Amino acid sequence: MAIDFRDTTTCKTMNENALSTVHRTFTLLINGPSPLSVDGDIIGHGAPQRPIDLDELKGLLLLPEAEDELKDAVWAHLVRRARCDGPAWVIACVAMAMPGLKNLASRTTRGCPMHTVDDIVSEMVTTFVAQLRRIDLDQPNILPRLLMWARKGALQARARELTSNEICADVPEPVALDAEPFMVLAEAVRCHVITADEAKLINATRLEGQALRAYAGRMGLPADRLYKRRRAAEARLARAIEEGQVSVSCEGLPSNPVR
């Protein structure tokens, strides 16, 4: 039976000091008499061909040599378990994403009073959990896409606080959500994750829908070279989002950096 992500018990657990509660619960799940584990034979892509407990798995994914294909295989498996096998696996998914979520929490709550921080972080985690049911597992970069949705939830919560009397000091107003993909590219250029030319390429062929071959023709470059360049740039961008290196902020961004 698939898990109901609207279950109030699960949501209550998530919303009480969200990240610390998840960490505490995850510790119990991996240290109990029957610790959560995955079958490495099912994961494939270089994973050890044996049962792997989630604490070890988390460490494997954080290694510099961990391939994107392995990460996506692991996350597709974890999300399916969350959909089918109950709240323990929902907690596991949040805990496995903890490095990125902590970084997002730090960035999106900077300068905010503590009770506002709790609300923003809770909304971030709730949005992450909701997307476990919706995320397309056939597309690459599963965790970076989940983290993008989590940050949207955090920014929406912060925006609600800003429209009330709870003003967060020294925090720029959230970027409009429909402009966010472009701003992610701008931030990636500012952080030297991708070049301005790579951002233009991704913006034109991904966000604007231009055919890569037509774009290559206008640039006077071979299409296969641009395809490889885009794939490498998107891989670096996905890793930077996953690790929390790239986060949208208006501060310090040029007004139109990649066009």
Rank of each mutant, 00 (worst) to 15 (best):
R239Q: 09
S255G: 13
E56N: 07
C191E: 06
R229F: 06
C168N: 13
A223R: 14
D224E: 09
A233E: 05
K200L: 03
G220K: 07
S249W: 01
P144Y: 03
C168M: 07
W89A: 09
P113Q: 15
L36R: 00
V248C: 08
V258A: 13
T127S: 08
P35N: 06
A130E: 13
P181G: 00
R158L: 08
R134W: 09
L185T: 09
S164V: 04
D72K: 12
H45R: 14
E16A: 11
V125N: 06
S122W: 00
E242G: 06
G86M: 11
P113K: 15
P144V: 01
L212R: 05
Q156N: 12
S106M: 04
S249C: 09
E234I: 05
S255F: 15
R231N: 05
K200R: 14
M96Y: 01
A82N: 03
P99N: 13
E173M: 03
A238Y: 10
S34T: 15
A238H: 12
N256F: 14
S37I: 02
S164W: 13
V121G: 05
R81T: 01
L60Q: 06
L212C: 06
V22F: 07
G111W: 09
I135P: 00
I120R: 11
P48L: 05
A159H: 14
A233H: 06
S164Q: 15
C112F: 04
V90F: 00
L54P: 03
D119K: 14
T10E: 12
A211L: 06
N165E: 13
I135L: 12
Y215T: 03
A95M: 05
L146T: 06
Q245M: 14
P99A: 11
K12I: 04
L54Y: 02
G252H: 11
Y227I: 00
I142W: 00
G32E: 04
P33I: 07
V90T: 02
